[in-house]
Nucleic acid binder design. Sequence first.
DNA 1: TGAAATGTTGGGGCG
DNA 2: ACGCCCCAACATTTC
Length: 474
Amino acid sequence: MPTTGLVWLRRDLRLADNPALAHALNVCERVVPVFIDAPDEEAPWSPGAASRWWLHHSLARLAANLHALGSGLILRQGPTLSTLAELIDACGATHLFWNRLYEPAALARDQNIERWACERGLTVASFNASLLHEPWTLHTGKGTPYKVFTPYWNACLKQPSPSLPEPAAARLPALPPSLHSLPLAALGLLPQIAWNSGLHASWAPGEAGANAALHDFVAEPMLQYRSARDIPADPGTSRLSAHLHFGELGPRQIWHACLTSKAGAEAYLRQLYWREFAHHLLYHFPHSADSPLDARFASFAWLNDEPSLAAWRGGRTGIPIVDAGMRQLRHTGWMHNRVRMVVASLLTKNLLQPWQAGARWFWDTLLDADLANNTLGWQWVAGCGADAAPFFRIFNPILQGERYDADGIYVRRWVPELARLPARWIHRPFEAPPDVLNAAAVRLGRDYPWPIVDLKGSRQRALAAWGDIKGAAS
DNA sequence: TGAAATGTTGGGGCG
DNA sequence: ACGCCCCAACATTTC
């Protein structure tokens, strides 16, 4: 019987720079790549519909790539532990390898599986495929986790440089004939309703698509990243987030690709380190996905107003840059980061809705939904997280629109009923003269809503509420 | 990885 | 010609 190892794939859906796979190929004669769909095991943060759409296509690409190298991908549905046990029995595996995850539910599940596998006498090892620095390797001088980005970043830069990513193997051993895979369709990852028609036009899930996106970004947009990244109508960002979430690409590969091509790399890599910081925080503060890191916000009087939430989700707030962002999210499963901050600020500060409600909607609709990043982003905007925005920093969505979408290109693209308004009024149709509205065929309250909130008054309300918290005892 | 309120300055219209 | 006022434009402070 040849030495057989399972490589339990999760969110490391690539062949290059995959240390669990590489290690298995080193120590085993037969290597069995396995993916087990078990969304319940990630509850209460089971992947949403958009994320599962991406996963379907990423798995399809991965299976094809494995097949082309002489192997294949064994697909199963959970529960994970009994499924692994069955696979191990079926092929006589003695080794089990995986690349680590860092979310609280996955950590607990994986520890349980590691204990079980050790008790069974299997050789078990896990590896780092998705972070530049393991969360437990960095701490402040006092031995505590970092809670401020800049010192965290400085500490990262003092660490040894990320190792060079290993290329994919040229050839893989064949799968044992005793194993069969479920057909991909049996996992039921694709949505029942056909809202996903727009996704194919925008995205190419899979390792090849990820590397093409990285290559394209580094060749051109990265050179102007510092300024272009804030313009939502421009292709100035990397758009690698979903590829990164599913591990079609790892941060080591990005790090090396950026540094070998110099210009613009620093500003972009800083963003990559925000992702690292988010994982550091979620690892050390596992409750923060659901509860504010700043305990003073535990009793904050959020409004929980369903009509406000519905208008925000649906892109019907009457504030063009916000509605454009929310509709881009619905149609493409993605939103530009500048606009994510603006829509989150409106929801939490102006509408006083709980950041958790916004985080949940992003979780369900983003292709790149990632618990660490989502948690950091929402707590940052709401002012209750680590290194959060000062409470008095409240975005004015009109000014943000006029500053970063001066010509209204982004609004016109996603809010077509406003497309005929001149740039002067595109971000404030509610202040436009009647003849301007008539000429643009915009009837407020019919073709496009009046604003659901008074920005000036709600800003004052938020300042007062956050000011109270600031004075409260922690 | 703000915005608004408040303060200051300097050019130009105008009595 | 001179001083007064207005108000951009910019800087500083405050939330």
